[in-house]
């Protein structure tokens, strides 16, 4: 059965989006991408530091991947829009992950500035994927503004704490028509699988893979979990019940005396 995620007019087979930060060595990124099967890969734009060794992460991302530059470092909509325009002019394509953050402790996104940036960039033809705190009204505004998907956080960035916002994400999945991509906080493959079982369209994972003991192996584990979770969602999980319901027939027991 064909089960493709359509984002920005592109069909995507693999529902694990991958971030490229925090890897112990950039040299393993190509293998991580290969084993994860990820087709959408994020990166950030920064000023060059003339005092340290300079590498461009794009050199480690295989051709054919969809580049998803983020606007990290932006503190308001104006800065996010500027970063997105620079990334596009630099040849990164039309996709952008909007990330507007002023909270340095929990790195929670500014939903209001994110809406403004989404409105501007969607009008300019970007495929806009906004990172947001899960809130139904904000998600509706982002959808109306032209977001290609909405990306609620499961827990604070880099925390590996899992789906702490489970109930709010469930509501977004229920009420929002554009794909819901759980971004941030997912720490283990089981949590990615849970998000997918709930009906998330995809997950975006970075820290949990990059900081694993073996990032390449963890990338594959996440990929399998995302596929398993998606299949479970499509299969339709059975009902949960408070009391037991026998799996084996309750007739024809091999007892010595048949009860009347």
């Amino acid at each position: 059965m064909e089960d493709k995620l359509v984002l920005g007019g592109r069909e995507i087979d693999n529902r694990l989006l991958l971030g490229t930060g925090k890897f112990p060595s950039k040299a393993i990124i190509p293998e991580v991408i290969k084993r994860s099967g990820s087709q959408v890969v994020t990166m950030a734009l920064r000023r060059v530091d003339f005092d340290s060794q300079q590498e461009n992460v794009l050199n480690y991302i295989p051709k054919g991947c969809i580049l998803l530059p983020n606007t990290s470092g932006a503190r308001n909509a104006e800065e996010a829009v500027r970063i997105a325009r620079i990334a596009r002019a630099a040849g990164c394509g039309d996709w952008v992950k909007i990330e507007v953050i002023t909270d340095n402790k929990y790195l929670l996104p500014d939903n209001y500035e994110t809406i403004t940036a989404t409105e501007i960039l969607a009008r300019e033809g970007f495929v806009v994927l906004p990172y947001m705190s899960p809130d139904l009204m904000v998600a509706k505004r982002l959808q109306d503004a032209g977001a290609a998907a909405v990306m609620p956080l499961g827990a604070p960035i880099g925390s590996n704490r899992g789906l702490k916002t489970r109930e709010l994400i469930r509501i977004l999945i229920d009420e929002i028509e554009v794909p819901i991509i759980v971004d941030a906080g997912i720490g283990k493959p089981s949590e990615a699988a849970e998000a997918m079982e709930m009906g998330a369209a995809a997950v975006l994972v970075n820290t949990a893979i990059a900081t694993a003991g073996d990032p390449v192996l963890m990338a594959e584990a996440f990929s399998l979990a995302v596929k398993a979770g998606r299949q479970a969602y499509l299969a339709g999980p059975g009902l949960t019940r408070e009391y037991a319901e026998a799996s084996s027939p309750l007739t024809g027991f091999l007892r010595e005396v048949q009860e009347a």
Binding site: T20, L45, R46, R47, V48, Q54, V57, N70, T207
Partner: peptide, 10 residues
């Protein structure tokens, strides 16, 4: 003048 590069990020 701004001299920029793409770096790893999530």
């Amino acid at each position: 003048l701004e001299i920029l590069r793409f770096v790893g990020g999530g």
